[in-house]
Design a protein around this nucleic acid. Structure first.
Lengths: 338, 338
DNA sequence: CTGAAAGCGCTTACAG
DNA sequence: CTGAAAGCGCTTACAG
């Protein structure tokens, strides 16, 4: 049985003895702030190095000192936004001397609570939630207790800081682009309806269509679609029922890839017979055939921005007022739209 | 400035006072093992619930108690094996009451050391390394100190426990399958040569070819290829130079997808003109056109198995001898091979 | 079964 | 600038 203390048994006392000073002096010499004479400081440092001393975090925590680490609560490790978002968070964290610990909830609130507790007990200074939703109150609990949190991608309005996509704008732009190509008859393959981000996108699409006296036919609207499989099956269903849209808006690239597979099998040409457009611009979007025209989401920037704002809260450089940042991406024109 | 102690200010003393007992008794009542009279136990528990008491982990750690958590050190968050592997690790961890904290090194040894220290200071009971390599000694340090570690996917022979793919077998099987189709002229698009797993695959391919009096022409062997881009460019190069293999073995699905894109552009048909086969069976492999014939890797099983063996070490149910498990996947037959 | 006391390894007023 | 002492919130022998 391994006991933690075996691993790193050298304590501040050992260093003190070796350096011929008191433990208090060792503590001061090793922390930056305090005033210690230069030669003693050097003696302490070399003793510490020699003994391979590392301060016991539990003891430091117990005294209330910070450990410069932030946590990320993810809903799902195979979320397409994950890699770039994490990169953004990490880059910002590292620049500021923080490390990042990631936990994955699998969209399970119970697991989430466990992980939040686990973070709290491990002296995490702040948490980024990619899981913020109404039925998920943990983030609000922490926020009420004045613990630094920020919502990323999903958020609960009028509560915490948040960094989100401007989903309404994205939906509007995508639709506008199709109309500019003379396309009028549009099918819409929507995501999980309970997520506000999807609601915003389709709402904007409808608004833009209405401006031109157009609308999405209910027969060509599919919702609560998850990823590849659902896109594929919905596309098969749509065309099997004899509907012939000029374009399909897919609420995510993965759905679009499923759609493309279905149309390949049905010998329907993209974009000659039907155009496909989506949201995300995942890595693979440019590699499939035809390459995807898609509304890129600035995942890296989102991650980085969320981390930056969380660190501001942790270091109290800002007022307590809620702040929400909406980020916009670029429409990437490729081959899937006529 | 948020101080950790503000968040959860209720201590064991508060509970003791409310329940009318001593702190020692509270501690015993709340931990399972000890003998406490039933009515006092109940009184303590309701007091704790009422006050929303949560034990301070720092204090518990300082006393040497375990927290039931394991860490995962990842080389890269956009590694294709990541989602399923993590799922496997998590499922096994949760069944046994452990939580999982993930850290990402970006293949940077310095970052890795920071994270390992961070884990150690946070009372992590064991660590799974997906980064094990010769130039990366952290895992060996821990192992020498008898701290539970296990290598996953990559490993350093004759050191720690490890769960890896049977890469030699995989390379052999893939090649054997092509030969069974009457294919003789094979190009090989290899991965980073410094990784043993890639070396094993190509070594096995060569061995199988040799058995049939065949070999890989140096002109048709590309190595140190990363992902999509490299697969694409190498394919363009290969065919631009007039080489006409009957099949390409790609050391990963992503390289294969890059190759397929290149061949699409060159109007070379798959599998009529050239077959493509690879390793991994990532989610998207079945959705591209043509769908990929590929050697599936049992990522979930690997993650789960690694976690299981790590927990055995943590709970000391096993001898100290190094154990290496090689797992095999299935060859998934789809449309990219003739 | 229960309580008083010691101690885990630090940090930080408090004296000097 | 430096040291002795107190204390962070727990757990666990030690008595009873």
């Amino acid at each position: 049985m391994i006991v933690k203390n075996n691993i790193n048994a050298v304590t501040i006392k050992d260093v003190a003895k070796k350096a011929g000073v008191s433990a208090s002096t060792v503590s001061r010499a090793l922390s930056n702030g305090a005033k210690v004479s230069e030669d003693i400081k050097q003696r302490v440092i070399s003793a510490a190095v020699e003994l391979n001393y590392e301060p016991n975090m539990a003891a430091q925590m117990l005294k209330g000192s910070k450990q410069k680490a932030i946590g990320l609560i993810m809903p799902n490790v195979n979320n397409v936004m994950f890699p770039q978002t994490v990169k953004g968070i990490e880059d910002e964290a590292f620049i500021n001397g923080y490390s990042l610990m990631i936990c994955n909830t699998g969209e399970n609130n119970f697991v989430e609570e466990q992980y939040v507790d686990s973070f709290m007990r491990r002296s995490i200074d702040g948490i980024i939630f990619m899981t913020a939703q109404i039925n998920n109150t943990k983030i609000l609990d922490l926020h009420k207790k004045d613990f630094p949190v920020i919502a990323l991608n999903r958020h609960i309005p009028d509560t915490t800081d948040a960094v989100v996509l401007d989903n309404y704008w994205s939906g509007y732009k995508v639709t506008d682009y199709l109309l500019s190509k003379g396309i009028k008859k549009i099918a819409y393959f929507d995501g999980w309806h309970y997520l506000d981000l999807y609601q915003q996108r389709v709402k904007a699409a409808r608004a833009r269509l209405q401006e031109s006296g157009l609308y999405i036919d209910d027969k060509m609207y599919y919702k609560d679609l998850d990823a590849l499989d659902d896109g594929y099956m919905a596309a098969k269903d749509l065309f099997a029922n004899g509907h012939r849209p000029e374009a399909v808006i897919a609420a995510s690239d993965l759905k679009a890839i499923g759609i493309i597979k279905a149309l390949h099998e049905l010998k329907i040409s993209i974009p000659q017979d039907v155009s496909v457009i989506s949201f995300d611009n995942i890595d693979i979007a440019q590699w499939i055939t035809p390459s995807l025209t898609t509304m890129a989401q600035p995942f890296y920037k989102m991650g980085r921005g969320a981390c930056k704002r969380l660190l501001e809260r942790i270091e109290s450089k800002i007022p307590l007022k809620e702040r929400v940042y909406k980020l916009r991406g670029d429409l990437i024109i490729r081959d899937s739209v006529i």
